[in-house]
């Protein structure tokens, strides 16, 4: 069966006064129907920009899709007109963004905002839409849905607002839901509730999900496949268990190692990845993580490693690295 989404060689640049920013470089991957793909990366990794550019949501200019194809359900999204994209967004591909405070319109009731895509895409009447809005609010766990539908965003707490955002995202039963740092602005206890809700929704409606986050812990609990991005490239991807338990990219390894693991003050020191995030105005040559990678070889600095199958790992586990992380770690351990 063909994958639901296939991204091929997607490359996105921004022309800015301080030079061309190479935000996304040659990104290729597929996502199957029903799969949850967790995309992990830091600011500037290209994780959000690549998702936005797939559906025409980056400003052009300064943004520019240099090359690539994004085949969704048999159509190349990058070739669609604005009109076709409008028909697609919200209907076939739903979105949930980070900040529910700025993404919701403060002067419209929650009902109007959830009903808008329903009316636009399905031509529902107000009464039909209202019934569906209440059903959606109940689905995302908002109590007293009929009354709450008539309220304004400021009358909701942060967590409840994010539930409203999720209700909008799934309102038209999209084939694909893209959530971009959807729980980052929330308190940790509220984040836990929202993640529970998403797992629950996955069971109920089986949507394919791309969950973009900087938090490895969130991905560990949610994703089937994890994709680690850095400097506009995919560094590693694969089934979540193999990537977390047997990482092959020095970046994934460093990220996991630098997280707090129940160590104690004065007893354990946190591992720190040296250096600073890459300057994306530089020409994207070589492994973008090489300057911070203690295991980098000379080749890493001059030649970009392709994303290939990781040796002796499970199917689908891929890594972009010229060095052999397992061998390097073994030598490091053997050293006195």
């Amino acid at each position: 069966m063909a994958p639901l989404l296939e991204v091929r060689n997607l490359t996105v640049a921004f022309d800015t006064p301080s030079g061309t920013v190479h935000a996304v470089n040659d990104v290729s991957y597929t996502i199957e129907e029903g799969e949850t793909l967790g995309i992990v990366g830091e600011s500037g990794s290209g994780k959000s920009v690549h998702a936005l550019s797939m559906v025409g949501l980056i400003a052009t200019p300064p943004g520019r899709i240099v090359r690539g194809e994004v085949v969704f359900n048999g159509r190349d999204l990058l070739k669609l007109s604005q009109r076709e994209l409008l028909d697609l967004r919200g209907k076939e591909i739903g979105f949930v963004f980070q900040d529910p405070m700025t993404s919701l319109n403060p002067v419209l009731t929650v009902e109007r905002q959830i009903a808008e895509p329903l009316k636009r895409h399905f031509g529902m009447t107000s009464a039909q839409a209202r019934a569906r809005v209440i059903e959606l609010l109940e689905l995302v766990g908002i109590p007293d849905a009929a009354r709450r539908a008539g309220q304004y965003p400021h009358e909701f707490s942060g967590g409840m607002r994010q539930r409203v955002m999720i209700a909008i995202g799934i309102s038209c039963n999209p084939k694909l839901l893209i959530a971009d740092e959807a729980t980052t602005a929330l308190d940790v206890t509220v984040q836990a509730q929202i993640l529970d809700l998403v797992r629950d929704l996955k069971r109920k409606i089986g949507t394919t999900v791309i969950w973009i986050t900087h938090d490895m812990g969130v991905v560990a609990g949610l994703a089937d496949t994890v994709q680690v991005m850095y400097g506009g490239r995919i560094m590693e991807r694969g089934p979540v268990r193999s990537v977390f338990h047997d990482p092959r990219s020095a970046y994934t390894w460093g990220l996991l190692k630098s997280l707090p693991h129940g160590g104690k003050r004065g007893v354990t020191r946190l591992y720190q990845i040296p250096g600073n995030p890459p300057d994306l105005t530089r020409d994207p040559i070589g492994d973008p993580f090489a300057p911070r990678n203690p295991f980098a070889t000379d080749r890493c600095k001059v030649e970009t490693p392709p994303l290939v199958d990781a040796a002796d790992s499970v199917a689908g586990h891929k890594v972009a690295a010229w060095y052999d992380l397992r061998a390097a770690l073994a030598t490091q351990e053997a050293r006195p």
Binding site: T189, D215, G217, A220, G221, F244, H245
Partner: peptide, 22 residues
């Protein structure tokens, strides 16, 4: 609740964890 709300970066643990709600 605060302690249990921290996501654990290990799929084997994180998937079977039920955060304490508060």
């Amino acid at each position: 609740a605060l302690l249990s709300a921290i996501p654990v970066p290990d799929p084997d643990i994180e998937r079977n964890r039920r955060p304490v709600s508060f």
